[in-house]
Design a protein around this nucleic acid. Structure first.
Lengths: 313, 313
DNA sequence: CTTGCTTACGAGACTCGTAATAATT
DNA sequence: AATTATTACGAGTCTCGTAAGCAAG
């Protein structure tokens, strides 16, 4: 039994039980993968994969069971390498952050700038996706850190800590009737076509929840991932926008007017997720702390250790 | 990086930083161990060991840090092999139980008998030691299960579940004055020389605690690991014995008389300990359940998963 | 008939043991 | 002087890639 064999098995499963793809992904030959897996199976004493003739069809029951252990072995081995790097080259390496458009565009630039200044030799990548994808990337190890407002807290394999809290705001063109009305209500808002985020994005769930709780029908004429897209269509007069408050910039968005709506929708918590059982480089902790100063290294490490506890602030 | 290198490092640390001993323990050559460790260090990018010329003096700081991870990798690798065996040969293998004399002699025979009947092909070993040794054996993996009344719950690396509760009893020769007195008191007991268990054995701590709480001075003329030894000397008239109640057998111990003392000393809880992060064979769960029917496989697995919780019954 | 797994085989790398060397106690 | 780690070297094994074969969809 060796690491290579375990990697081959894991990759084969990840690639949908396709040896050829697994071999390509690992930059090696297909026969090599086949042989090593068979040797591992021989050593373990049972087959991991169900084969129909020369096709791999599925995982055997024992295969499913050992797969989890295989993943833990490889995870710990990766932790070891990462810890080693953290000692030998403290300030170099790479950091991959998976996040949504809104975070990447409005809350991360400050953090990224500061991080790059402090760790010029760390290669930083931002991966963008919808919240479930962000969760997936954090879970699979493609990303070291996931940042999003939705989905993250639902994965048991992730530790999702609260980063910061924010509210939505309503944006309208200048001279819009809503600007003259008094305090904004859901009913008043619902009289106009709405432009806001896609389902499962940037607190959209809280928006829907508020309307349906009051039984108010809304007409979402357009939904987008992207605050900038929403603002553009609001400027064109297609409707009233509901966006994250931090996505409104009074100077830049001079063609729009903003209305407070923090009393209408529940506030949103953007969370930082890391994989349970994973190991973070020193600078990864720093990145998180720059993003949310309350999330100190100590707190995160404690949260990773005592798995069960809740860390709401 | 391979498993062998990690094993070499772990063994070297376990053997007190002595390569020669590590090599012997692993049935391989000393130069091989030396070379592999140096290669691992080269790959990791830092030294694990501090060397003074040609002697290994200590662990480096990074070395200490990665040692923990190395142990986890190897633990998971071992779990993998064990899980594999559990699938390929469900009813064969070995089970090592570390325990104290009292348990081995008075509470385990029934369990061992039943276990052997149900799993004739499992090689069962009983290792005997004092409670700290039992804990150590469970922790190091020498034993799969540790059973003792003391020490086990103090190791954070162990999960120590309550197995059963028992009381001490007082044994005296026939016609001893204590038999005529009324209800037994600590003061009455302390008038006679006492023969009981060694420190840190079979609830001795509860005995000492009871006397010192009432400020009663006791004269323990003889202490032993072994209930049979205690009974022998009581028969010889050397003093009054305090032993575990289950160690008294009315038929066999016809030369002795027993006195209840459950009101004098706190009752004792014998615990079953397994290593956190370890994996138990199916029959190991069965062994534990035969010993303490309340400790079902499900309960143990849940307790191993939710690390923080308390599982007092 | 294309895709995809397995078998066969050979080159190169790696592991491990023995013997010799060197440094520490 | 004895113990203990490192270096040198060679035999044997293992890994991996190419090429060929063969089963399934």
């Amino acid at each position: 039994m060796n690491f290579q064999q375990l990697r081959y098995v894991r990759e084969t499963v990840r690639r949908g039980l396709n040896l050829t793809e697994a071999a390509n992904a690992l930059h090696t030959s297909q026969p090599g993968v086949s042989k090593q897996i068979r040797e591992l199976e021989a050593e373990l004493g049972f087959d991991i994969f169900v084969r129909h003739g020369k096709r791999i069809a599925s995982l055997t029951e024992p295969g499913k069971a050992v797969l989890g252990i295989i993943e833990r072995v490889l995870q710990e081995a990766e932790n070891l390498k990462r810890a080693a790097q953290d000692f030998s080259e403290r300030d170099t390496g790479s950091l991959t952050v998976a996040t949504t458009h809104t975070q990447a565009r409005y809350s991360l630039p400050r953090v990224v700038g500061e991080f790059k200044r402090r760790y010029p030799k760390v290669h930083l990548s931002l991966l963008q996706g919808n919240p479930p994808q962000v969760a997936e990337m954090a879970l699979s190890g493609v990303a070291d850190i996931g940042i999003a407002t939705e989905s993250l807290e639902q994965h048991p394999g992730l530790l999702a800590l609260p980063g910061y809290t924010w509210n939505h705001c309503v944006v309208v063109p200048p001279k819009h009737p809503l600007l003259k009305a008094g305090a904004l209500t859901l009913e008043a808002l619902a009289r106009y076509p709405i432009i806001t985020y896609d389902t499962a994005f940037a607190g959209r769930s809280n928006i829907d929840a508020a309307f349906s709780a009051r039984n108010v029908a809304v007409d979402v004429v357009l939904s987008a991932i992207d605050s900038d897209v929403i603002k553009t269509y609001v400027e064109l007069g297609l409707g009233v926008g509901i966006i994250a408050a931090m996505a409104f910039d009074a100077r830049r968005d001079s063609h729009l007017r903003v209305l407070d709506c923090s009393h209408l929708f529940r506030s949103n918590t953007t969370r930082v997720a890391v994989k349970r059982g994973g190991l973070l480089r020193g600078y990864a902790y720093e990145f998180i702390e720059m993003f949310a100063p309350a999330l100190s290294r100590k707190l995160i490490e404690r949260a990773l250790a005592g798995e069960g506890e809740l860390y709401e602030l």
